[in-house]
Design a protein around this nucleic acid. Structure first.
Lengths: 342, 342
DNA sequence: AGTCGGACTGGAAACGTTTCCAATCCGGGT
DNA sequence: ACCCGGATTGGAAACGTTTCCAGTCCGACT
């Protein structure tokens, strides 16, 4: 019952050999069979286990990767974290979670904190991106991988997904099902996802050969169910007095979509009978909801895994060229746009 | 554009003062006004920021706390992590996430890994607990706080909740609403939550003055929606041929509850009309579900915060007496047990 | 038998920080 | 003018590990 942990030096003394040999014997290279055995025995007797800090100091490697998001607790981020952890853990890396806050400046500060060297790299999902943040990423002392916008022009490694194209898939899907009066429920336009999804919607509606009777866009205060309900009410209200009621709502994420469904129910509208609803992100929430939610999967776990793979490559060779990986969106059709009749 | 980060020694040379004074000036105690200014200036010019590893080695403190759960990704754990992070971050602690795997042995191994000293403490949520795990916790070189079972008798700090009492609240609630044919949908009995919730259910049903017409228990293979659906089908099937159909299902967590609702819908049963359903954990999933889910809140975020507070106390004084905190369960009534008629 | 080379070992330095201890400085009281 | 003490300062050690370098040993080849 030693109150203090055994050190390598103590193992060395116990085994009656030098510190250097002890290290070699335990770490594994260039030690004789006999030496290894002898040292192992001594280490076992003392219950030795190597100190991570001492090792880190000497090796200049912490075996830790930071994962920074605006809000741990958001299901999408959680799934990414799971993906990241899944890839990194088998390689001996620990994952440190951090929160960026929701401004680009606070994210930049977090990136700057990498200077203290507590981690070998960082995977970050900035809600908003500006030049300062990009500059900070470029001058970071360890590899940084961005999940979100593709940043090839800045020489930053990133994992992106074409959420604009994803919204396009959703729009075409509801058009295919004969809907012509379409509402788009988006989140704040000054966020990265908000901006690109708006772009995707406008492009899809404006595309060659698309015929609609009515198109409305409404912006929610945030990407949450609560804000989704409020904004969806406005959307339906706006559409009410006038002639044709909306028969489809394309939402910028699953939470907003669920908000839309709840608002529709309040008005006595059935989903998908009166109004079809699509979400985005393919969260568990949407999967188990009633009706289950048609949603555009952006491959959260896949993006997390991809980011982790990129990171592993960069930690091996920090000077390698920045790479971009794109994960394709995929429409998952479920009950909220299809029930009974085709 | 120095390719390598500045070290304290470089700052000292630049300022033309000793290493010791430089450290004091930046860290803050026992340095003259002039010295502080001089060193600060030099540090700023070099873009110096202290190396976390060097500091950790010397101070024997990592400013990191581990959070270990079976499965990051489970909404309940995520909320706890958020609570933990919320309390710890302002004190300068980082949170390292780790997965225990679902056996007691693998959790024990994780606790043993604390010997490498990469972290100042650990908050762990063991799915299963055995003597080895407890022993490992007791001999850990840093404070360990357990969320789950109260472990006062072993001198282990823990944050617990009386989920048995919580199930009791749910049972009484459905009884109050006139339901008499009650099914209990539980998860595996060899898990900590499974065991105590079963105990709570049995106690509530067996309590003085409780009148029921029918009581059934069904065990799902896991605490998931998918397993919940399967087990709920068995529950309803079992009840079918015979006379009175179940009019309430008490589920051991929200995921199982949602599984029960889906299974009920398959059979054409309305919720809460034909069958009332309660969950446990008060997850966002349940909050936004349709119908919104009556659920027993075990205060996930609150337990996370409490565990973090305990941890802060222990890192200040590792030898202080182990403490136990209990967070009371609270029934949150929503649509799945009440709609229209009282 | 003498030399060469490979395999192994030990000494010592280095990673970047904080802090103990001794030394220096300065002003004020005698 | 001298000494005392508080306030600052610098030197050096220490935290625990890995790894460079030089040295030792031993078998094998000429």
């Amino acid at each position: 019952m030693t109150s203090t942990r055994a050190t390598l030096l103590q193992v060395a003394e116990r085994a009656g050999v030098s510190l250097a040999s002890t290290s070699r014997a335990l770490h594994g290279t260039g030690a004789s069979r006999a030496m290894v055995e002898r040292v192992r025995a001594a280490a076992a007797e003392l219950g030795y286990s190597a100190d991570a800090i001492g090792r880190s100091l000497r090796m200049k490697k912490t075996f830790q990767i930071a994962f920074a998001v605006a809000d741990i607790g958001n299901p999408v981020y959680v799934e990414m974290m799971r993906g990241i952890h899944e890839v990194l853990a088998p390689h001996g890396y620990r994952v440190v979670v951090m929160t960026t806050g929701d401004t680009a400046a606070s994210a930049a500060e977090l990136v700057r904190s990498l200077n203290s060297g507590f981690v070998d790299g960082m995977v970050v999902i900035p809600l908003r991106t500006d030049d300062e943040l990009i500059a900070e990423i470029q001058r970071a002392p360890v590899p940084v991988v961005v999940i979100g916008r593709a940043l090839s022009e800045h020489g930053v490694s990133s994992v992106s997904t074409d959420s604009a194209a994803g919204i396009g898939q959703a729009v075409r899907h509801v058009l295919d099902r004969g809907r012509r009066r379409i509402g788009f429920l988006n989140g704040p336009l000054d966020t990265t996802p908000g901006a690109s999804r708006q772009r995707g919607f406008d492009a899809a509606i404006g595309a060659e050969g698309v015929h609609t009777e009515r198109v409305e866009t409404e912006i929610a205060g945030d990407f949450t169910v609560a804000e989704g309900i409020v904004a969806a009410r406005r959307l339906f209200d706006r559409a009410s007095g006038q002639a044709p009621r909306l028969d489809a709502v394309v939402a910028a994420n699953d939470l907003l979509a669920i908000g839309a469904i709840r608002a529709a129910r309040e008005l006595g509208l059935s989903v998908p009978g009166d109004v079809a609803v699509t979400g985005m992100d393919d969260t568990e929430l949407g999967r188990v909801f009633l009706p289950s939610l048609t949603s555009v999967s952006l491959g959260s776990a896949a993006r997390g895994r991809a980011a982790a793979e990129l990171m592993l490559g960069l930690t091996d060779d920090p000077d390698q060229q920045a790479r971009q990986i794109a994960v394709g969106p995929e429409l998952i059709v479920r009950e909220s746009t299809t029930d009974g009749a085709a």
